[in-house]
Nucleic acid binder design. Structure first.
Length: 299
DNA sequence: TGGCAGGCCAATT
DNA sequence: AATTGGCCTGCC
């Protein structure tokens, strides 16, 4: 079982995996760089060939086209967007370097609810800690994924779990960590190292139940309206809201500003608003800046 | 040991 | 409108 997708531009799995946008990619040991990815209640192992122009997926052609093609944003022309950055811009030299460094990164179009929760978790945490929290949360509350065909043989832990639904998370609310009387086999949210974020996660789950069709409804809303709506959730500020818009609602113009992007702005831009010169794709520009600022040795 | 990490909130100016 | 302390947790 396997499917190939011919790519129109290069796709760098490693850079994308390490660019702080998705927390459910697991690197597989092996000769080639491959990742086990879990999303939308499914899982898949992917790799690319040497020139990063052919994507291999161990799933059916139907899943590849209907689930994973949009997930990897394969129908967006990143080259065209990159070409809109003029070297004559005041920040053009910095952006050129950032885009070269991050060449091959793609914006992953994730599930809205999963994105909302994972970015609430992300506050005051680094990427490994976030990944571990999300993993624990899925084990504590998510349903196991039965389709073992899709599981890489090189993973140490073969059981995969779907991201929990709001209902599944709320069902844990009455069970504290280490509650010996808990009749459920699963641990509570207290076991997920979420700390002060626990009430935020509950607030998000309750909000989600009150707005079950938010994704659909958001389609007729402006970016500002969507951001304001998300920030009504306790624990969601402007940074988290922007991340959810960019990675969970396909709002390519949303640009989250964290400490790394902020450093870049102070260094190479007049101010934050200058990023909007790259509207309607400021979010992609932000992703290059973030990755470059955080990882480049000579930044 | 204490400071800090890819925020947010509430209280305070 | 802008600033500050506190917050869970893990890591150095």
């Amino acid at each position: 079982m396997g499917t190939e997708i011919i790519l129109s531009e290069k796709f760098d799995l490693e850079k994308t995996a390490e660019s702080g946008q998705c927390f459910r990619w697991r690197r597989c040991d092996g000769a080639d760089t491959a990742y086990q990815i879990t999303a939308f209640g499914k899982s898949v192992v992917i790799s690319v060939n040497n020139d990063q122009k052919i994507l291999h997926l161990n799933c059916s052609e139907e899943d590849a086209e209907k689930i994973w093609r949009p997930y990897f944003d394969l129908d967006t022309d990143y080259t065209a967007i990159r070409n809109t950055v003029a070297s004559s811009d005041s920040s053009g030299a910095y952006l050129r370097a950032a885009m070269d460094y991050g060449d091959g990164i793609r914006i992953i179009r994730q599930d809205f609810w999963e994105c909302l929760v994972t970015f609430i978790i992300s506050q005051r945490k680094n990427i490994p800690a976030i990944t571990q929290c999300v993993d624990k949360l899925c084990r504590a509350a998510g349903a196991p994924i039965i389709d073992t065909q899709s599981v890489s043989a090189t993973l140490a832990e073969p059981t995969l779990y779907a991201f929990p639904t709001p209902e599944q998370i709320l069902a844990l609310s009455c069970h504290k960590n280490g509650d010996a009387d808990c009749s459920f086999a699963k641990a509570g949210l207290g076991s997920c190292s979420l700390g002060y974020r626990v009430p935020y996660i509950f607030a998000a789950a309750e909000w989600m139940l009150r707005h079950p069709d938010f994704v659909k409804e958001s389609e007729t809303m402006t970016d500002d309206e969507v951001r304001d709506a998300l920030m009504e959730i306790k624990g969601v500020g402007i940074k988290v809201a922007s991340c959810v818009m960019l990675f969970g609602l396909q709002r390519m113009n949303a640009f989250p500003v964290d400490v790394w992007v902020n450093r870049a702005i102070k260094k190479a831009f007049r101010d934050e608003s200058e990023i909007m010169n790259y509207s309607p794709n400021a979010g992609l520009i932000q992703q290059y800046i973030f990755f470059y600022e955080k990882n480049h040795p000579n930044r």
